[in-house]
């Protein structure tokens, strides 16, 4: 589904990704871990098409097509979803309206019929329940005045509605207390499907207790320096990153 080959990227003069290789197949859950400044969030942003990064080498194929050639909205319409570490507030724009506009943009690009207001409302309400979200959140402005937990739940709600093929979760656990984390993780787990891939970007192992990955990769200094199964995450929690060749210089303060 997703093939990243020798991906290199920089911001201004600073090289951040120095050759990332990674393959995610449908139905798999991959976790990318690594110390601060290792390039985790950059990888997530580059995949979603955030501008301001210069791609200096390598390629990314999504379902066989050149992902890097697409505009951000076309990547989204093709099925890539990024759950933001810091979801953006948009004053005055109704949350439901935003979500409906997004869904209809995606549906339209697939040649599907756009949903009308009533059908959409039904759909959203159904998706809302498992997330233990209050319906009043639908009437508020996008993320405006939301607590950290509400923002992250809102991201998962958007994911549930947009039904992406590949979901990238950027530090989704940051700023969440344990209860909120459980709700968010349950929401994500409910969205696991044979034809859907997940890429979890996280600094802490904590999230992986609730969303169990099939593969764990350590990103350090812009490269994946170690890959393994879910046990690797536990090992990282105990030992930190310093013991891994390639990650020793920048020991994280875990």
């Amino acid at each position: 589904m997703l093939e990243i080959k020798n991906l290199q990227a920089r911001v201004e003069d600073k090289e951040i990704l120095r050759g990332v290789d990674l393959t995610v197949k449908a139905g798999e859950v991959h976790a990318i871990m690594g110390p601060n400044g290792s390039g985790k969030s950059t990888l997530a942003h580059v995949l979603a098409g955030r501008e301001g990064y210069e791609i200096t080498g390598g390629q990314v194929l999504f379902e066989g097509k050149d992902l890097l050639a697409l505009k951000p909205e076309d990547r989204a319409r093709a099925g890539i979803f990024l759950a933001f570490q810091y979801p953006v507030e948009i004053a005055g724009v109704n949350n439901t309206y935003f979500l409906k506009a997004a869904l209809n943009a995606v549906r339209k690009s697939k040649g599907e019929e756009e949903l009308d207001a009533m059908d959409f409302l039904e759909l959203v309400k159904a998706k809302l329940k498992p997330l233990k979200m209050d319906e009043s959140m639908l009437q508020r402005s996008v993320n405006e005045g939301f607590s950290g937990g509400e923002k992250k739940k809102n991201e998962v709600l958007q994911m549930a509605v947009l039904e992406p093929k590949l979901a990238i979760l950027d530090e989704t656990d940051s700023g969440l207390d344990i209860d909120a984390l459980k709700v968010v993780a349950d929401g994500v787990n409910a969205l696991k499907r044979k034809d859907r891939g997940f890429l979890l970007v996280t600094h802490y192992q904590r999230l992986l207790d609730y969303i169990v990955p099939d593969y764990v990769h350590v990103l350090a200094q812009g490269r994946i320096v170690k890959s393994g199964g879910k046990e690797l995450a536990k090992e990282l929690e105990q030992k930190g990153y310093g013991w891994i060749p390639g990650a020793e210089k920048k020991e994280a303060a875990v």
Binding site: E51, P72, E73, A76, V88, I90, G92, V93, F98, L162
Partner: peptide, 25 residues
């Protein structure tokens, strides 16, 4: 804000319109 909207599938023009409209709400 514009990137967030585009990541959800909206074109940049739609994103601008949406945000302006929210501003005037």
């Amino acid at each position: 804000q514009i990137f967030y909207c585009r990541q959800r599938g909206l074109s940049s023009e739609d994103a601008v319109n949406l945000i302006v409209n929210g501003f005037c709400k």
